[in-house]
Design a protein around this nucleic acid. Sequence first.
DNA 1: TTTGCTGCAAATAGTTTGCAGAGAC
DNA 2: GTCTCTGCAAACTATTTGCAGCAAA
Lengths: 147, 147
Amino acid sequence: MADSNERYESMVRKLKEHGYKLTHQRLALARVLSVSEGHPDVETIFLRLQDSFPTMSLATVYRNVMLFKSFGEVLELGFPNGRNRFDGNKPFPHPHVICIRCQKIIDPDVGSLKDMTEEVADITGFVILTHRLDFFGICSDCMTEKV
Amino acid sequence: MADSNERYESMVRKLKEHGYKLTHQRLALARVLSVSEGHPDVETIFLRLQDSFPTMSLATVYRNVMLFKSFGEVLELGFPNGRNRFDGNKPFPHPHVICIRCQKIIDPDVGSLKDMTEEVADITGFVILTHRLDFFGICSDCMTEKV
DNA sequence: TTTGCTGCAAATAGTTTGCAGAGAC
DNA sequence: GTCTCTGCAAACTATTTGCAGCAAA
């Protein structure tokens, strides 16, 4: 896991560089995103912020998560069920392993896709900008649990 | 591309095996899905069906695409924007290359992810059931087009 | 003081569901 | 003739937007 203080500083720097105001809400959100324990969805981020920031609204969470995403400071993982999840700790493409029972998401340390990306570019004539690789399965906790 | 007649027969067989009725709507949908030219979204499938089937409703498309998906006869590609797309021609995990300008999706012929899947299972302790690999970029048509 | 930001509530868009009539077998 | 399926419209859910008041700089 990346150093979350560095991540936080980077987010704050991007706000300043782009001329956005440093509101309490944005700073609190940057704090939560920079840790991003467990790849939270918007609801989870909202709940974590309410602990320290009771007046926070959902709309503000959406607006500012998207703002940080536009700076490349947050990676959005979209899902068909509409509960997208966010990673502000490692905001660059990397593989995910997702438990289809408990929805846990972890980051495995595996080799990069650089070779395959080049192969795909050669074959298809696309200019490849990014990628997404998810493995779906059942985590060991859920495997040992009674049904 | 797989043989679309074989795919169609397979879909019809699954309907019979599971005791579902062979309605005109389901057969027409199976025909469209078995070709799946261009990984259509629900709206596109709906429009294609209306040519030959003017009374078709969107709800019926949704219900039956999901029915075929439950048989493993259709692969759903979910996207954060909510316009999910479907592949009834190759309903098993395979890489996709997606143009972020024109939304075209193509299937590149690249090596499998078998080795990486095993590596991920070893590292994480997950039982890996499926995966998804998408490359995002700009296709050659869109690259040469004027902005 | 100025300008951008937040919170609220209403709007939006894709998808799902309840129900009465239609159709497969 | 029976029982599932369809079409319609309303419901649902995550997200976005308009707007009036608030707060950062």
